[in-house]
Amino acid sequence: MNMFRFLGDMTHLFSVLVLLLKIHTIKSCAGISLKTQELYAIVFATRYLDLFTDYISLYNTVMKLVYLGSSLSIVWYMRRHKLVRRSYDKDQDTFRHHFLILPCLILALLINEKFTFMEVMWAFSLYLEAVAILPQLVLLQRTRNIDNLTGQYVFLLGAYRSFYILNWIYRYFTEVHYVHWITWISGLVQTLLYGDFFYYYFHSWKNNEKLQLPA
């Protein structure tokens, strides 16, 4: 495993853990889109179906379990925890995320590395991950609430995307037969959408700057 991949995994892991820890500590999820978090939970659940069928390394297995556990915990907090769910911007978080799922599923049925259940689910998870940030983007534009979407979360997600792209470039040039078009293209789309998210974040941050008091 190269350094880019490892750093990509770590920043991805920290982005999820920082969010979970924040929700757990301040008992608030204001500014966080439940729709996006639910999509991420579906992404992990469908991608890691191979947990029980293919063993790659202890590292991979542990990471998969941690990603699954932490993203499901975030969803649980936002839906079930009596204090946290009160802070949820339900009326603003109106993106109809179910409409993202069906097109991704159809695309996965049409474009996959092999037409098997596991491979279709894997492709589905990649397509869904690419667009999962959309509800969060819409919520951010609506509420301009950047209190909880701290610089850390934005920075970590951005670092994760960048490191993974560097990892793909590195592997392409150092390994024989390392070609994953589906992963690359959906990863690129995801990074572009993330760039949008990044842009709005800083835009909101700049505009709210004067109103914010030191914490």
């Binding site: 293919d54 790659i56 991979n60 098997t116 992963t183």
Partner: peptide, 10 residues
């Protein structure tokens, strides 16, 4: 190999 390669990334 080729089709249905083992996915070793997360």
């Amino acid at each position: 190999q080729g089709q249905g390669k083992l996915h070793d990334e997360l």
